[in-house]
Design a protein around this nucleic acid. Structure first.
Lengths: 341, 341
DNA sequence: TCAATTTGCGTAATCGTTTGCGCAAAGTAG
DNA sequence: CTACTTTGCGCAAACGATTACGCAAATTGA
């Protein structure tokens, strides 16, 4: 019941006693082709079960209509949502999205870029891996004139369009909120990595303390990889201090979750004894007990904007566009883990 | 600093005064090419910053070295993990994976298949969308002789290789465990959809009841879309019954989470008054309070096996291989939400 | 009615790689 | 030293679609 041999436009042409070029034009709705021929071609295409070969087309006009998206991992709600936001826009413009994961692994990230270049994607959208400190692979993309846009995890070492949220503001507002809840010894979980988002969150934390005249205590800033287990360890460290904190602002929901576990295991009341806030608004943060205060990163919106910015690079051709930076306002989601009054 | 014009093997050939075919063979490490020439070619390639054009290669030998993976959504831990498992195997064999999401939307699923076929992927691995009841698009894939393997969400309406866990066994063991915890009125959350996984879980539930001589009560089986909100509604329905259940086995962790929220809001003790078990071992299930008993679906393993099965279809050519069904044993993860003694 | 335009389609080159075939030079066997 | 095999590479035709160019027929305008 199935034609094993691939059917091409030549087969259609032969059947109709016309040439392949006419078929091609008919399929692409070229105005120079008569409606009669178009209909005949369409009909024959159905009959023969014709499947266009995008590879041949891509080779011919140097466009693949595929854009590569690189995320550290697709199973974090935030990244998955951004991808969704990108897809919405891209699909509307008839572009396909291929999702690649770097798993926060530098080598894998480099390889992925290489693979995407070989696959001749029309552009790349990426969020940089946590461990990446050398950006030559991204520079290579740019040097080839391939559109590149970064989101969330970006870097200043590249002249590139980027979309991010105002991590500084998100952190500032969170800490401000904690202060308004009468917290005075506020700890912070951050990452030692070069990624700017964490640096910005730290800056927001420090500035909020300063503005409210709360002394900065280095002991209260714990650096780790910010996974759940790291959050547990960090919390344990804090509890060993002579003077325990009365709040923890974690740059990651997962680490905040780890801290919550430790606090609950030790019977420490949240938020009465220690208030707790995270960052990212992962879905599980609303399930926890108590529900976790966190910062929403406008992920879908970020995906939309990133894709739109990306496609502007096409329209305006290779030149003309300067790299531009879009900063979204985050939203503080206040839940019971910080509500002390 | 960058060559805007694309460099091809012809450029390398010209520079070295040899032909493109020799360059091609050298790059592909063909034994008929001398080591000297190979080295020279590699060197020139670096110098010219040559980037192979996979599209041209794909067109030539009809292989794209890309396989398409379709999942309902990538932000569920289970699916993300399976994808990871698939990638591990595929990357080792030098295949790229392109991840597409159907969002459980039938039209999107059909479109995605179409797009993957046009992109000339070498094969497709998929998990069927929840609302899909017509499988012609998958039949089309098969009729074109393109390898197809399904995982988890499969169907018997297709003659296709598939990998799944033993949902029946997972459900049976869970219910058996609940019975051993002295639960006697055990409710079940399931889906009205045609997807076999839910039907199997229901069957496991029913058989366990029967084997332990517990009467089946239709009122205790609630059908819904199994999202968190559905779980809340379902739990509320159960609590309105004359005789409340003393356990809930949900076919989804999210719905179980919804039930947990309602129970906690009403001050009903978990597991003493109502024990609670989910399905899938989503990461958040270990965070909840109490932690949720659930069934692990061996997601990475499933990805590995799926990919291996998939690649067997290549080796053995188009014929010879009959579709085969691999069933993995799930693992019951017992946590506090069901431990009554 | 005749020149000018439009309509409809064919010719052939092209995108960048791969590969079957062929051929000369070098190596091997007897 | 002849005959045969191996080594190293070039020639040219694919793969399937797109497109600049050209040309005849049909249409239009005056």
């Amino acid at each position: 019941m199935s034609t094993k041999t691939k059917v091409t436009i030549h087969d259609i042409a032969e059947k109709l006693n016309i040439t392949a070029s006419t078929v091609s034009r008919a399929l692409n709705d070229n105005p120079r082709i008569s409606d009669a021929t178009k209909k005949a071609v369409l009909k024959a295409a159905k009959q023969l079960n014709y499947q266009p070969n995008n590879i041949a087309a891509a080779l011919r006009h140097g466009k693949s209509y595929i854009i590569g998206v690189i995320v550290p991992t697709a199973d974090r709600f935030f990244f998955a949502s951004v991808v969704r936001g990108i897809e919405e826009i891209a699909n509307n413009l008839n572009y396909k999205v291929i999702i690649c994961q770097s798993y926060d692994n530098y080598e894998k990230e480099v390889q992925t870029i290489e693979a995407l270049l070989n696959a001749r994607v029309d552009g790349i959208i990426a969020s940089i891996g946590k461990n990446t400190e050398n950006f030559d692979h991204f520079k290579k993309v740019q040097s080839k004139g391939i559109p590149l846009v970064l989101f969330d995890r970006t870097t200043d070492e590249l002249e590139v369009s980027q979309v991010m949220i105002d991590d500084y503001l998100g952190a500032y507002k969170t800490v401000e909120h904690l202060i308004q809840q009468d917290c005075r010894r506020i700890a912070h979980f951050t990452s030692p990595k070069k990624v700017s988002v964490f640096k910005e969150r730290l800056r927001g934390y420090m500035d909020a303390l300063r503005d409210y005249e709360i002394p900065y205590d280095e002991q209260l800033v714990i650096k780790s990889d910010l996974q759940l287990e790291d959050g547990r360890e960090s919390m344990k460290k804090l509890l060993k201090l002579k003077q325990s904190p009365d709040a923890v602002f974690s740059a990651s929901d997962y680490a905040a979750m780890g801290a919550m576990q430790v606090l609950k295991e030790r019977g420490i009341q949240i938020p009465q004894e220690v208030a707790l806030a995270g960052f990212s608004n992962e879905p599980f943060t609303s399930f926890t007990d108590p529900p976790l205060t966190t910062v929403d990163q406008r992920s879908i919106k970020m995906g939309n904007i990133t894709a739109e910015l990306f496609f502007e690079h096409f329209k305006d051709g290779e030149k003309g566009i300067v790299s531009q930076k879009t900063v979204l306002k985050p939203e503080l989601i206040i839940r019971k883990s910080t509500l002390r009054k």
